[in-house]
Simulated assay, not measured.
Amino acid sequence: MKTPLVGPGPELSADQRARYSRHLLLPEIGEVGQRRLLAARVLVVGAGGLGSPALLYLAAAGIGTIGVVDDDVVDTSNLQRQVAHGTPDVGRPKVDSAADAVARLNPTVTVHRHRERLDAGNALDLLSRYDLVLDGSDTFATRYLVNDACVLSGLPWVWGAVLRFDGHVSVFDGAEGPTYRDLFPTEPPPGTVPGCGEAGVLGGVCAAIAATMVTEAVKLITGAGRPLLGRVLVHDALAVSWREVPLRPDPRRAAVTGLGALPSVGAAALIAATADGGGPVVVDVREPHEHAEAAVPGSVLLPLARVLADPGLLPPGPLVLHCARGSRSAQALAAALAAGRGDVAHLEGGIAAWVAAGGPTTTG
């Protein structure tokens, strides 16, 4: 049993006793534990495949304050697994759709909407407002950022990841155990690990991993049970198996002293820079059919696979790379930087952010 992360809040009301009656029956939680949950402040990074179901279970559990940070909008392809959003929400900011879903489920929960991308500039400020972080992001860059920000802030965090039929969960706390950098000391080479947008994911796997993440959060907040510190839980849905992998701190790991970030540019800044036909060359690393549906005017199409195979194919001069949301362009940028290019950045939030900021598009 670990020391509870959060102190208990006020005595429960009659309505709260009725709502959380099944928790009160659990000796490991009980009334004091529920008061801790009601006093807790949890930040969820990403309102997608993992963050979406996690938000609902956190709200149902009575987490008093939930923050959700996401700069994306709901897309039809999200609805197969991102259960906080529905068909009428397509095109809406995910933070708004998720907040509405939480309000329908438990209107007593306070939701703070952070419609922005977590980056080195805002991470420490955002984390300072919360007791615990649940990371449902889908890029290694964001996970390293969450890890380093949590280490610097002294916060524990719950990590989850899914791909195809597989999932992973662990708890990291730099003060007493291994961190994410002990599990993945360096980021995998660009292009070696596909995302869900390229490889797919079963919606039920997202639910299973998110539920486990919330269970770990509840345990950390209340002090119940034994958290997944120093252990990585691996789920194989096709084999219907769960196995545990031990994880220990690496004594050679460098201490976290600050936050780094890939060079990036915001949509509004790029729109202004290219308004008169000047500015950097914009390179679209999406696939041809995506480029044909909506493209930044004057952009050069160079799919990610070609960039990863030969970064020398990138045009000379200052460049801004973009994809749909920012994941693939981050991979392309890492490859360009590794090849020695120093005049390249990528568009935060991809073409979705460009459109949301009022940027023009072409088709065909």
Rank of each mutant, 00 (worst) to 15 (best):
K2V: 15
T3S: 15
P4I: 08
L5I: 02
P8S: 13
G9T: 02
P10W: 10
P10E: 11
S13W: 08
S13K: 10
Q16A: 14
S21N: 13
L25G: 14
E31A: 15
V32I: 15
V32K: 14
R35P: 05
R36C: 08
R36L: 08
A39R: 04
V42Q: 09
V42C: 13
V45A: 08
G46Q: 05
L50V: 02
L56D: 01
A59I: 00
A60G: 13
A61M: 09
I63L: 10
G64E: 03
I66M: 09
V69C: 12
D70S: 11
V74I: 13
R81C: 12
Q82V: 06
V83A: 11
V83H: 08
V90W: 07
R92D: 12
S97R: 04
A98L: 09
A101T: 03
V102P: 01
R104H: 14
V109Q: 00
T110Q: 13
R115H: 13
E116S: 14
E116Q: 14
D119E: 12
D119R: 11
N122C: 09
N122Q: 11
L124F: 04
L126T: 00
L127W: 00
S128T: 03
F140E: 07
F140V: 10
T142M: 04
N147F: 04
A149R: 02
A149C: 10
C150T: 06
V151K: 00
L152Q: 13
S153W: 07
W157P: 06
W159R: 05
G160C: 05
G160N: 02
L163N: 04
R164C: 08
V171G: 03
F172Q: 02
G174M: 02
E176A: 15
G177W: 01
G177S: 07
G177A: 09
L183C: 09
L183Y: 10
P190F: 04
G191A: 13
V193D: 06
C196L: 09
G197E: 08
V201A: 04
L202G: 06
A207G: 15
A208M: 12
A210K: 00
T215K: 12
T215E: 14
A217M: 03
A217L: 01
G225S: 05
G225T: 01
P227M: 02
V234L: 14
D236E: 03
S241F: 02
W242K: 05
R243N: 12
E244A: 13
E244P: 05
L247D: 04
R248L: 14
A254T: 13
V256I: 14
T257P: 01
A261G: 15
V265C: 12
G266V: 01
A272S: 15
A273N: 11
D276H: 14
D276E: 15
G277H: 07
G279A: 10
V281Y: 00
V281K: 02
V283D: 00
V283C: 01
V283I: 03
V285S: 07
H291Y: 15
P297C: 10
G298N: 09
G298P: 05
L302T: 03
L302P: 00
L304D: 01
A305W: 06
P311F: 02
G312Q: 07
G312I: 05
L313W: 07
H322R: 06
A324P: 04
S327H: 14
S329C: 10
A336S: 07
L337C: 08
L337T: 05
A339K: 07
D343P: 03
D343H: 09
A345K: 06
G350I: 05
I351A: 04
W354C: 09
V355W: 05
A356H: 06
P360Q: 11
